[in-house]
Computed example of a mutant assay.
Amino acid sequence: MGDLLNGSIPLPQEFYEQPTLELSKALLGCLLVKETKEGIAAGFIVETEAYIGPNDRAAHSYNNRRTKRTEVMFHQSGLVYTYVMHTHCLFNVVSGGEGNPEAVLVRALEPQSGIELMKSRRGMKELKSLTNGPGKLTKSVGITMEDYGRSLTSPPLFIAKGFRPESISTGKRIGIHNSGEARDYPWRFWVTNNQFVSRHQKT
């Protein structure tokens, strides 16, 4: 099962053990793959945001907040942290290592495989709007709260090598207005000029 999409295989555990800001950039261009009963859907990661608790007021783990929702963030890197916001499931990659609750939010994908399945799930035909947002991409590829705590090193949900971005842009994170000075941290990263990024301007 690991040999999917023309030889794409999951990245090793070591990939996820780099510092969170570095991982946020390293994930750009990688291929996110989800296998379901309906088929396989995949897309290249083109936008991420880093959340570095417990000193990051925008992070769910700020002040080492350990709850049923954030528990997985306190475990090893490379696990899936999903949560629901405004009825949408959002997908994060746990980082920081054991006891350091950090994560990378995946904000946008460039559709690569299973595009018709994605369109069916979203009830739309426009390719550009399928996955250009964190709630849109999870619905398109089939990521749900059932994926919480999975390891990304094996199917049905994994990340594989993709392409190397020619240029990476940096800006403020989105939608965290009530987080004090943390709202100004330049911890959003995206593939420069990629049409599937949720926002191109430095917000």
Rank of each mutant, 00 (worst) to 15 (best):
G180L: 01
N64Q: 13
T138L: 12
E49D: 09
P186R: 07
V84R: 05
S77V: 03
Q13R: 14
H200G: 10
L23V: 06
G43P: 11
S95H: 09
I9S: 05
P19H: 14
T82P: 02
Q18T: 15
G96P: 10
T82M: 07
L4H: 07
P155T: 07
Q13F: 08
F163H: 10
C30A: 11
K37V: 14
L117T: 10
L31Q: 10
S179I: 00
M124Y: 02
H60I: 12
S151H: 06
K37C: 06
D3K: 12
H75P: 00
D56G: 07
Y81N: 05
E38F: 06
Y148Q: 12
T170H: 01
S140E: 03
E71V: 00
Q76M: 09
A103N: 10
T82C: 11
M145Q: 09
F196G: 04
E14S: 15
A108G: 07
I176G: 03
R199T: 08
G149K: 06
K37W: 07
A160C: 10
R150F: 11
C30T: 15
H177V: 00
T67G: 03
S179M: 00
K37E: 15
K136A: 04
V94L: 09
L157H: 03
H75R: 15
S154M: 08
W187L: 04
G162N: 13
R164G: 00
M1H: 13
I45F: 13
P156G: 13
L11Y: 07
R199D: 02
D147M: 08
G99N: 14
V33F: 07
L109H: 14
L23W: 09
V191T: 07
V84D: 00
M124A: 15
G39W: 01
L79W: 08
E17R: 11
E102H: 15
G135M: 08
I143S: 08
R173L: 04
L137C: 11
G175W: 08
N193L: 01
I45V: 15
R199P: 00
H177T: 01
V80Q: 11
S198C: 03
S198A: 06
Q195E: 14
D147V: 01
S154A: 10
P134D: 09
R173W: 01
D3L: 13
G114R: 05
L11V: 11
P54T: 14
E126G: 02
L109M: 12
K119E: 09
T144C: 01
T20A: 13
F15M: 09
G162Y: 13
E38H: 07
L90I: 05
P134F: 12
S113I: 03
R69V: 13
